[in-house]
């Protein structure tokens, strides 16, 4: 029984770490802010979720587990709202989503909050 719990929490923690690292890699690799949001969503949902549930499984049923699940509930409630806020602000700030056609950059004269004038589709068309 104890061994099962250990193995399960190991698996959950390592799985969470995997999704977390993949999401972070996606943040660096993907071409523009809209696609990066999907990678950020990955760390927020499965990365954080699996690690927190892994901690809860390791801990067993007591008050600490309730608090862990409370943290997870807060994270899962707030993360889509924050992501949506970023998406909406980026759209109204004049950014246009990167597409395979290479539209990438901001709309004409949009400017918005672009702070150094670089191309938003930095990294260019994936090879």
């Amino acid at each position: 029984m104890e061994q099962t719990v250990t193995v399960l929490s190991w698996a959950l923690l390592l799985g969470g770490a995997f999704f977390l690292l993949t999401g972070s890699l996606g943040m660096v690799r993907l071409p523009d802010v809209f696609t990066r949001m999907h990678a950020a969503g990955m760390t927020d949902t499965m990365g954080a979720g699996m690690i927190v549930v892994g901690l809860a499984v390791y801990n067993g049923a007591d008050l600490v587990t309730v608090r862990l699940l409370l943290i997870l509930a807060f994270l899962w409630f707030t993360s889509p709202i924050a992501t949506h806020a970023v998406a909406k602000a980026a759209l109204s700030g004049g950014l246009r989503p990167y597409t395979l056609g290479g539209v990438g950059a901001a709309a004409d004269g949009g400017g918005g909050a672009r702070d150094d004038g670089a191309e938003s589709a930095e990294g260019g068309v994936p090879s």
């Binding site: 889509p80 949506h84 909406k88």
Partner: peptide, 8 residues
Amino acid sequence: LTPGTVTT
């Protein structure tokens, strides 16, 4: 919440 789709 499901990665791959974001409501804008």
